[in-house]
């Protein structure tokens, strides 16, 4: 994937998060990554690396500190992709 269309990013994230989540949750843009999905930190870091490669970006660790929901992660990816 090479573009930074927000909807496509959301779609990719929901798909990947769905396969990683331990809980049976309907994942939407407003889903909370930590409290609702029960994904451990290592799986989440691996997912971030996969996303970085998919969009050919690097996501600063400190930017992730402000990310709680799928929407916030998608917005961050979109912002970094636009700036690169």
């Amino acid at each position: 994937m090479t573009n930074n269309n927000y909807d496509e990013i959301i779609e990719l994230l929901c798909d990947r998060l769905g396969s990683l989540a331990n809980a049976d949750v309907n994942i939407t843009a407003e889903t909370n990554l930590i409290s609702e999905l029960s994904i451990d930190s290592i799986k989440l870091l691996n997912l971030i690396m996969e996303i970085e490669d998919a969009f050919d970006i690097s996501i600063p660790i400190n930017a992730l500190a402000d990310v709680q929901t799928v929407h916030e992660l998608a917005s961050l990816i979109s912002k970094i992709k636009s700036a690169s």
């Binding site: 690396m49 690097s58 600063p60 660790i61 400190n62 930017a63």
Partner: peptide, 13 residues
């Protein structure tokens, strides 16, 4: 130290 600096932190494997 990186957090204290305020710089963007990128990690490599």
């Amino acid at each position: 130290g990186c957090i204290l600096s305020g710089a963007e932190i990128i990690r490599f494997k």
